[in-house]
Design a protein around this nucleic acid. Structure first.
Lengths: 144, 144
DNA sequence: TTCTCATTTCGGAACCATTCCAGTTTACGT
DNA sequence: ACGTAAACTGGAATGGTTCCGAAATGAGAA
């Protein structure tokens, strides 16, 4: 349940020799404050603009890509939906509501060892993606 | 390990009141013949064109969408990569090579009960997606 | 067989999240 | 302060996918 926090992210930037810019700080703030929402680029962009007077969408994309590739956050890729970002790097299943798009983290019991399973197939796993799609509690209640 | 086959697909179309057209037959052939490859729309399009004299890309997309929504095949959605289609509807993990795009089916042991896990969270699962990304045996051998 | 019509197909335009580009600005070590 | 590699910008380009109106067609009914 390693959730992102601001100081940690900044330290990781320094360690990797990445520059601390107002834009990145604004994006980090947006990421941390919305960590529960699994935010997309648009949300990050809008939030970051409130913090820094100048942030472009291009920069938001570049930064989120940079962070994902550096392993600071995890990118949840979608086809028709905007990509989303997850600050929880521990192994878990994302429960994704088809209707409202809510993403719930579900931590898996220790019994499952995905890396071992894959290794038996002669495949080196660098990344796991486990999503269960369906309907969340709230959407099930709501009519229509 | 319910792998698609031609007769079965045709029967399912009939059951669902969908029409049997030359285009759909060509697409079915392409799907069945390339079932091991987890083909994308482009491959299906190219293969289907060899069978039927007239098939448009629009039709291929519409048909693959139709088939996926009817549960005949499973759509594997990607962000940057073309979407792929899987004829194996049983629960398994897709091992996806980041370098060559190869997709290997890895059947999970019975111990894992994803549906139950999710149900405990008050979430009705309609769809599971389990992907392990990394490098396949062949790509590991290859230099560069 | 022929008729009828909802379904399917077609091609091209539209979509849209994301990436690319070339030029400008900036963080930060020296 | 300076110099330079890195980061930022805005707008154009990308590319897989969907949408659209019009034309074609499968398959049940007559």
């Amino acid at each position: 349940m390693r959730k992102i926090n601001k100081e940690n992210l900044i330290n990781q930037l320094k360690e990797k020799g990445l520059k601390i810019t107002p834009q990145r700080l604004a994006i980090i703030d947006a990421l941390v404050e919305n960590r529960h929402a699994h935010p997309g680029a648009t949300l990050i962009y809008n939030e970051a603009r409130k913090k820094a007077n100048r942030v472009s969408l291009s920069t938001v994309y570049a930064t989120l890509k940079e962070f994902s590739e550096s392993g600071l956050i995890k990118q949840l890729e979608f086809d028709r939906m905007e990509n989303r970002y997850d600050g929880d790097l521990s192994e878990h299943i994302n429960l994704i509501c088809k209707r409202c798009g809510t993403i719930i983290d579900y931590h898996i019991p220790a019994t499952l060892e995905p890396k071992d399973i894959a290794r038996k197939a002669g495949f080196v796993v660098t990344d796991t993606r486990m999503e269960f799609h369906g309907y969340c509690r709230d959407c099930l209640k709501r009519p229509d």
